[in-house]
């Protein structure tokens, strides 16, 4: 059993727990917090998966995903604030 695959499985559990908060969250900022946490977990999951299958392309995707998810978070936050974009 590859240790990186085991790590990926355990991180899947924490993504599921964070997803419960994203579904339950009483207010919209709660859901955004859950989403932001899931994004960071998915980035580290991509790094681990890239190491597990020895493919560098997954790590490149992780870099792009990190930058795009940041833009998404800031965009939703700005929208909630109600200011001009």
């Amino acid at each position: 059993m590859n240790v990186f695959m085991l790590t990926l499985a355990l991180m899947g559990i924490s993504v599921l727990i964070a997803m419960i908060r994203a579904i339950l969250g009483p207010t919209i900022p709660d859901r955004v917090v859950g989403l932001d946490t899931i994004n960071t977990l998915v980035i580290s999951g991509m790094l681990v998966y890239g190491a597990a299958v020895k493919e560098i392309i997954y790590i490149d995707v992780a870099i792009v995903y990190a930058l795009l998810s940041y833009i998404t978070t800031v965009l939703i936050a700005k929208y909630l604030e109600g200011g001009k974009l």
Binding site: P29, L47, I59, L67, V74, L80
Partner: peptide, 30 residues
């Protein structure tokens, strides 16, 4: 793999606190 992981880590380190600050401010203002 090492170099690219380092760049991904750098991206996380810079963007994560900024995103948290944005969400906190948006939550307070809403």
């Amino acid at each position: 793999m090492t170099v690219h992981s380092f760049l991904a880590l750098l991206a996380i380190l810079i963007t994560n606190p900024t995103g948290a600050h944005a969400i906190a401010r948006a939550a307070y203002r809403s």
